[in-house]
Design a protein around this nucleic acid. Structure first.
Lengths: 221, 221
DNA sequence: AAAATTAGTCAAAAATAATTTACTTAGAAT
DNA sequence: ATTCTAAGTAAATTATTTTTGACTAATTTT
């Protein structure tokens, strides 16, 4: 008579693939941390979605915290790379300013997880982003490029103002991000659905108008 | 020989005061939920800070969730009451627009917990704010007032634009709030301390400039 | 082909938190 | 003064989640 203990568990044999598994965990974790924040995120849900065992998170990343850190680095690297492709400096300043606004607006609109992750990281007072020298370094060039654009536009008489590049950057980001970050509460407060594509389209136009009119770049009234 | 069990525990007798205890829990909970979000908040920490027993939270509010709900309602009621005191409609439109911006900016700057709570509520996709009809109702009048101000300013020729009140409101809030909501990440990214009073003062001026110049209200420069 | 490595599984332990039970007693009501 | 209600305490319980230990077997290396 065979004892139950003798029967080897029929494990559905999974072919090995470290790169794929690691990448899958990371990708799923982006969504999980974005959706629920660090504290709300569940290791088990990541596990399920990545169709792997919880042990693997510890195997590949060391733990929930380190996984979160890897997620942060990864999404920042992505946006900074995209920004770098804008390559300001050659075209008409007004056009480049418009491109700056439109790129930022669209990137946020299309990469919902990015803003959500940042929102949560700020909830934690930047506990983790502060540890990443990489993120700091990657960001400097873009601010510098905006400063040069302001300089050039003003010198050429295309802009009537020459704002501090950091203030302008914060303004562009604020106008592009706030309604996404706060769609739920603002939507309830103003009684409109801010996630509606038509609303967001109107917002896009408004954002461009606000920034360009501030620069004194003479758009349509 | 006296048995240990016989000795009544020397409980530091606390005088009873339902109102105070309830209010203390609520007040402490505002900070706790603001600082850590719903998931990160700890019942035990609230207990400690309110110098009461965890049982009291269940006694007065029913649980962690209901306490959070009470916190939300309480902070929204407060800001809406303050806004109502602005009473637009009599003074110069440009002046009133400026007051709108400055009030919003200052309220956010001075009531850090309000923005933090909202940030977290959005992380939860507005799960709880949606349950509060009160918050919805309290907010309508302010949007209406802004609409009337736009109307009046435009009719009087004080504003060259007549924007959608919701868009304008979102813009004012965005410019006033984003740098506070994202001080940690933005600060790291731009390499400046956005919590510095001098920085925030500059931001205040910039915010007013952006909004008024968009309205075509002819400020300096 | 044997040995070593490491991707992967399972199940339990450790840690962390929310909630409840059982009890005590201050202060209001009779 | 006695009774009653509910404010308050302590400690256990239940629930949830993260983390680890012990093992298995697929690949890689030698």
């Amino acid at each position: 008579m065979s004892k139950i203990e003798d029967v080897p568990k029929a494990q559905p044999v999974r072919s090995r693939n470290p790169e794929r598994t690691r990448a899958e965990i990371l990708s799923v974790a982006v969504t999980e941390f974005a959706e629920h924040g660090f504290h709300g995120a569940r290791v088990e849900r990541i596990t399920k979605a990545a169709k792997c065992n919880a042990r693997m998170i510890y195997h590949y990343f060391g733990g929930k915290e380190q996984l979160y850190l890897a997620v942060l680095d990864s999404v920042y690297a992505q946006i900074r790379n995209r920004e770098a492709q804008l390559r300001f400096g050659t075209a008409d300043p007004v056009l480049e300013a418009r491109r700056l606004v439109e790129f930022t607006y669209d990137y946020f609109a299309q990469n919902g997880d990015f803003l959500k992750l940042i929102r949560n990281e700020n909830l934690l007072n930047g506990k983790y982003i502060k540890r990443s020298q990489m993120i700091r370094d990657m960001s400097q060039p873009f601010i510098t490029a905006i400063g040069e654009l302001m300089e050039r536009g003003h010198a050429a008489g295309a802009f009537s103002r020459k704002p501090d590049p950091v203030q302008l950057y914060v303004t562009v980001v604020a106008l592009s991000a706030h309604h996404l970050n706060n769609a739920a509460t603002l939507g309830t407060v103003v009684g409109q659905d801010l996630t509606d594509p038509a609303w967001q389209d109107a917002r896009r136009g408004h954002t461009v108008d606000v920034v360009l009119s501030y620069l004194g770049a003479g758009t349509q009234v």
